[in-house]
Amino acid sequence: MSEAKKMSRNDKLRHDRLTFYKDDIDKIDKLLAEFLRLSGAKSALLIDKEGHLVTKRGEIKTIDIDTISALVAGSFAATKEMARLLGEEEFTAMYHQGERDNIQLGLVGDRTLLTILFDDRTTVGMVRLYANETAKKLADIFKSTMGRQHESPDLGADYGTNAKKSLDKLFD
């Protein structure tokens, strides 16, 4: 492969990945904490469309975050397909109602989902009202960080070597 092609491939890899820096997560966490205070919801998770957690706030100690993130992303992807069949690009919000707990999902920007868990201490109307406001503010943060997505993340020179050692340890 030529050097030019290698570079373009690296560029593509950098473009495809999602990188979150602590400064940005601090801003997001602050917004989510304010949202929880105003809406009365139990917890808020920000998840990327591939089902990886970005950050979380609220009462979430007993929840299996990895699994719920994967399922939320999966269900959202499924509704996107439904929307496409109806001629919509995608549905931007979803709501799951339970006897005690409920989930409100909303798209933030192009690549993340705001997942809100709430119970009967508040109402779906309150949650949606403040969720929409929060989603707009979060989208603004993502816009401002877009340029940084194309930088090379500094995982450290030892990452590759250590990763191989960890794989040996796990699989052998």
Partner: peptide, 15 residues
């Protein structure tokens, strides 16, 4: 796609 989260100190990959 790979997610690199410096706040959580995590790298997430999908296989």
């Amino acid at each position: 796609m790979v997610q690199i989260n410096f706040a959580l100190k995590e790298v997430n990959c999908k296989i």
